[in-house]
Simulated scan of single mutants.
Amino acid sequence: MWLTVLWLTASGALAAERGHCGRQAGPQCLHSFALPAGAGQMHYYASRAPRPGDPHGPQTALLILHGHPRDVGRSFEAGLQAARAAGRLPRTLVVAPLYQVAPAQAGRCSMPDTPGAQPGDALWSCAGWLAGAPSLGAHPLGAFAALDALLGELARQWPSLRSVTLVGFSAGAQMLQHSIGFAADPPAGVALRYVIADPGSWLYFDPVRPVPLRGERTVPWEACGTGGCTWRFDVPATSPACAYDHWKYGTQSLPGYLPRTGAQARAHYAAAQVDYLEGALDSSADKGTFYPILDKSCAAMLQGPFRLQRGLAYAAYEQAVLKPRTPRRMVIVPGCAHDVACVLGADAARPVLFAPPP
Rank of each mutant, 00 (worst) to 15 (best):
S201I: 06
Q174A: 10
F169G: 08
A184I: 02
A183H: 06
G168D: 15
S170C: 05
W202R: 10
R162E: 13
Y194E: 06
Q174F: 14
I180Q: 06
F182T: 14
S160V: 05
F169Y: 15
L176F: 11
V164R: 04
Q177V: 09
S163G: 12
L166N: 11
R193Y: 15
Q174V: 12
L192V: 11
D185I: 01
G181A: 08
L161I: 07
A171L: 10
L166W: 03
V190P: 13
S201Q: 12
S170K: 01
S163M: 01
A184F: 05
S170V: 03
P186R: 09
L166D: 04
R162G: 15
A197H: 06
A173Y: 07
A183R: 13
P199G: 06
P186L: 09
Y194G: 05
R162Q: 15
W158M: 08
G189T: 04
P187L: 00
V164Y: 03
L166H: 02
V164F: 01
A184E: 08
V167C: 07
G189I: 02
G200H: 14
S170N: 08
L166Q: 15
P186F: 06
A183N: 02
M175S: 03
D185M: 01
I180R: 12
T165H: 11
T165E: 11
F182R: 08
Q177Y: 11
H178Y: 11
P199R: 00
A188E: 15
P159D: 08
S170P: 07
F182W: 08
G200L: 14
S170R: 01
L176Q: 00
W202I: 06
G172W: 06
D198M: 02
D198P: 11
G200M: 11
L161H: 11
P187D: 04
L161G: 15
F182G: 14
L176A: 02
S160Q: 04
S163F: 04
A183D: 00
R193H: 11
V167D: 10
P159F: 01
L176S: 08
L176P: 12
R193D: 09
A191R: 12
I196K: 02
L166C: 12
H178E: 15
P187V: 00
L192F: 14
Y194K: 00
L176D: 03
S201K: 10
V195G: 10
Y194R: 03
A184G: 13
G200D: 15
I196L: 05
Y194C: 01
V190S: 11
D198Q: 07
T165K: 04
P159M: 00
R162M: 13
A173C: 01
V164C: 06
V164T: 12
H178T: 03
H178C: 08
V190K: 03
A197C: 08
G181Y: 06
A197E: 07
P199D: 05
Q177T: 10
H178L: 12
Q177C: 13
P187C: 02
F182E: 14
A184Q: 05
H178W: 05
I180N: 06
F182P: 01
W158V: 05
R162T: 14
W202G: 11
D198Y: 09
G168Q: 10
A183S: 13
A173V: 09
G172S: 07
S179I: 00
V190C: 03
G181I: 09
A184V: 02
F169K: 03
S179K: 00
G189W: 00
G168R: 09
S163N: 10
S160P: 01
